[in-house]
Design a protein around this nucleic acid. Structure first.
Length: 271
DNA sequence: ATGCGGACCTGTTAGC
DNA sequence: TGCTAACAGGTCCGCA
């Protein structure tokens, strides 16, 4: 799925086309996403104007006059702007028709994503209220991470992927950041020093920023809101390279499972 | 509170 | 070539 850079790219791609537009209608082709898409949206949304499109963690927040759509792309979701008469794809489950003769289509083969609605401050929604800080914000610092790691026995990789600790670090970037910081993914949280936290936090920020600049990693066929594909995986140092030579020391990269996620690391460079 | 495993679903790929 | 099993970018929930 979309990791944070893909969601950010989508947000930036679609926002200029959505903000200020009046909604004509919402079509739900398949309401069975992670949670059912509320049928009431079909009556609620028409004639309302989109005020803003923002991102919190991997959630896209589409603010309308009377509330906010909370959209998550799950593992396989994508949003794209299409001409309203364009044939829809097999997995285009939700379609938002706008005034400017564009249609926002939500495609999600695995249906792990969600379209939710709230009339309150979206930050207070149960899915958002307990989220950790944004990885690119200044709240996510070495000191913050170090404090959070105290007395934690879980593997550092699992911990940096925990959205209660920090949001937006998915499997790909967790692997990459740990490699760049020279930290073994299986180390317990409490064994990571403040100095290592400094390295790790700066690598997480660097890698995510870089990926956003490149328009998202795009594994298979992710397409940003503007229809441009992101860059491919050739810039990744470890993810997807188990068994290959480490680009830094030539040792064979190891692949293991950690918390049911594929984990790749260099047994020499990462301690 | 923390940690772990299972669950949600379809599509693609690796292996026999 | 065809069938089957394993695996894929996420993250919530329930249980120990």
């Amino acid at each position: 799925m979309p990791e944070l850079p893909e969601v950010e790219t989508t947000c930036r791609g679609i926002a200029p086309h959505l903000v200020g537009q009046r909604i004509e209608r919402l079509v739900i082709n398949n309401a069975s996403l992670r949670w059912p898409v509320p049928e009431t949206l079909k009556k609620l949304l028409p004639d309302q104007t989109i005020r803003s499109v923002t991102r919190r963690a991997k959630y896209l927040l589409i603010a309308i006059d009377s509330g906010t759509l909370i959209v998550h792309l799950g593992m396989s979701g994508s949003l794209r702007l299409a001409p309203p008469d364009e044939a829809r794809l097999k997995h285009d489950h939700v379609e938002l028709y706008l005034d400017n003769s564009l249609c926002l289509r939500y495609c999600d083969p695995r249906r792990f994503g969600s379209w939710l609605w709230t009339t309150d401050d979206p930050e207070q929604h149960s899915l958002l209220i307990n989220l950790g800080p944004e990885p690119l914000g200044k709240q996510f610092s070495a000191k913050y991470l170090f404090t959070k790691l105290q007395n934690r026995k879980q593997a550092i990789k699992t911990l940096i992927m925990d959205s209660h600790l920090v949001v937006g670090v998915g499997n790909i970037y967790a692997n990459e950041a740990l490699f760049m910081a020279g930290i073994h993914p299986q180390r317990s949280g409490s064994s990571v020093t403040l100095e290592e936290c400094t390295l790790l936090v700066s690598q997480i920020k660097k890698i995510l920023t870089h990926a956003i600049r490149r328009g998202g990693t795009t594994l298979r066929n992710f397409v940003g809101g503007d229809g441009k594909p992101g860059y491919f995986a050739q810039e990744l140092m470890v993810y997807g390279r188990g068994g290959e030579a480490c680009q830094r020391c030539q040792a064979t990269l190891q692949e293991i499972r950690l918390g049911q996620r594929t984990t790749v690391f260099c047994p020499i460079c990462q301690h």
